[in-house]
């Protein structure tokens, strides 16, 4: 498929344009920081969206993969003096293998059993990271050295902005192409009805495993970048709450929409900063906003808005 007439091309161009213009409008490093976090969350969510939105599989443990990536980068670079890129690749390979091994039994589960299975996996990862404190620094976390690639060390929010932006664009591009490929079609068939898809000759388990592993690796890579960027990580990065945040971003933005994942990540990253004005009522408002959005825009923000603007789509 030529990159020029791929589906979602307009969206991708709009995203690139936004990325180019945004730095002119960001007054200081704090705003850059928020945008970088949005970018990192978007990358994870785009991967997770392939799993939730397209393959129709829930994962309440994806932060576990994010955490493994982050800790591999942290431990290998700080304790063992590895180069950051090598640590990142090893983290991703380990997550790839781990997710591949558990993918088959996990992907056999349905609905709530799948939710529980992935949740349990994430919780176990967090417990290991918390308990093995000689390696991970325990619940207080550990510092992570700066990122370096070929001797160059990116430093400061503006430099990181462009790195994350490039990775984000690449992830969006990958996601859009995957969805348009035969794999994407097979996935949509799986989402519709698994048994029906199987009858039509789609190897359901194979595709589900593929997407599960891919989304886990994306989460691991984002985790590595996050660790180097913030310079300090704790087991909370792999925790249940973080997993839930990621799923919420995907669903809020709109399932089965790559740009929905980006929008969801943006909203849920900015929201806690805006809600600080409510002080003691922060949680109350946050909970209410979640419930409200899910009830009134249950398909998520981007699909709902898209429907509003053009009645064409389903």
């Amino acid at each position: 498929m030529s990159p020029l007439n791929m589906p979602g091309r307009n969206g991708l161009l709009a995203l690139i344009a936004t990325i180019m213009v945004l730095p002119l409008m960001l007054p200081n490093a704090f705003y850059f920081d928020i945008v970088i976090l949005i970018g990192l969350n978007s990358i994870v969510c785009i991967g997770l969206n392939l799993l939730i939105g397209y393959a129709g599989q829930i994962s309440l443990g994806h932060a576990g993969f994010f955490g493994i990536g982050a800790y591999f980068s942290a431990i290998l670079t700080s304790t063992y003096g590895w180069p950051a890129t090598a640590a990142m690749v090893v983290g991703a390979v380990v997550v790839g293998l781990l997710s591949f091994i558990i993918a088959r039994p996990i992907m056999k589960l349905q609905g709530h059993y799948l939710a529980m299975g992935t949740l349990g996996l994430g919780v176990i990862i967090t417990i290991v990271l918390t308990q093995e404190s000689d390696l991970t620094g325990g619940p207080d976390g550990m510092p992570v050295p700066g990122f370096s690639i070929f001797g160059w060390e990116p430093y400061g929010e503006t430099v990181w902005y462009w790195i994350i932006a490039a990775v984000l664009v690449a992830t969006v591009w990958l996601s859009l192409n995957l969805i348009a490929s035969p794999v994407g079609r097979a996935l949509r068939a799986v989402h519709g009805s698994e048994i029906a898809a199987e009858t039509l000759g789609v190897n359901v388990v194979k595709y589900k495993v593929l997407v599960f592993v891919l989304s886990a690796i994306i989460a691991s890579l984002a985790g590595s970048l996050f660790a180097h960027y913030t310079g300090f990580i704790t087991p909370d990065t792999s925790g249940f709450i973080h997993s839930i945040q990621l799923v919420t971003m995907v669903v809020l933005g709109g399932m089965a929409s790559t740009f929905g994942a980006v929008a969801g990540a943006a909203i849920l990253t900015i929201l806690p900063q805006l809600l600080t004005v409510f002080h003691d009522y922060e949680h109350l408002v946050f909970g209410a906003v979640l419930i409200g959005t899910m009830i009134f825009m249950r398909r998520g923000l981007v699909p709902t808005l898209a429907d509003l603007f053009n009645g064409r789509q389903k």
Binding site: I52, L60, G111, H112, V247, T248, V251, L252, M294, R298
Partner: peptide, 8 residues
């Protein structure tokens, strides 16, 4: 969907 209800 199940996920939406979980988030609610």
């Amino acid at each position: 969907s199940i996920v939406t209800l979980i988030i609610i």
